[in-house]
Amino acid sequence: MLNSDAIWIIFTGFLVASSCGLLGSFLVLRRMAMVGDAISHAVLPGIVIGYLVTGSREPWVMVPAAGLLGILTSSIIEVLHQKAGVQSDASIGVTFTFLFAIGVILISMFAGQVDLDQECVLYGEIAYLPLNPLVLANGWSLGPKMVWILMPLLLLISLGIYLFYTPLSLTAFDPAFALSIGIKVGFWHQVLMGAVSFTTVASFDSVGAILVVAFLVVIPSTAWLLSQRLPLMLGLCLLLAFIISVTGYLAASWLNVSISGAMACSSGVLFVLAFLFSPLEGRVWLAFKKKSQQIGSI
């Protein structure tokens, strides 16, 4: 059942899930989960323009182009909210739909030249991944090309979080305090947004935007229900990423359905389990504790 293609798919799933989980932790703590959703859609015009300008769909064109769009998106959201007094949720909604609409129009204007459509951005399919391997000049195959983008990305993200743990975590928990001790909150905000856009683009070529959102939001939320400390939460994200990619793949090949979809569903199941049974605040656990306390008091 687990041939080499399967191993590559699970490994890619794990890479995407852990990159998204680590970055998503900071988004969820800063109550900016939906900004991740917005960016994952708003990068579409960046991808199209990048493609039209260079004529290439290679990751080294797509990733910077979409990264720029991601930073632009978060800046527009910021300006609308801070300067024009639009509700923060609404400024997210207005911005990403505008950019996505421009992307779709660009695609249909240059329909003959662009091999993209909005369905492929939404769905993506990790199953086709091994069809695009990185082959060396002497004929050796090094596995899917995307793995060679995603692996350094995960290393970079982990290293970044390790080196800049203090400013990142302070900005996430208490931006006012962070500002008062001289941390450049705005700068770290942009760094985070840039990292989210890069990861989104690098990921959704292989897994689709919705799976990216699932990994960005569901994995950190589940980890947060299970822990009270950020380092533990980040570690749990990696563990969850592993469980999700393995169980998602197995379920998908058993039922013969979309692998990306199954992985996201698997993360949903884990979230529900944590919501009900987390030893910290799971509903079932709390109800049980309450009951035993009542019995004790009688």
Partner: peptide, 28 residues
């Protein structure tokens, strides 16, 4: 209402998991 998860993350969770379930059904 019943956890420390905030509105924005709850939206993201519902959005992505429901849609993913839909994709699974669609491919099924």
């Amino acid at each position: 209402k019943y956890s420390k998860i905030k509105e924005d993350a709850a939206l993201g969770i519902v959005l992505s998991v429901f849609f993913a379930f839909g994709i699974v059904l669609l491919t099924y």
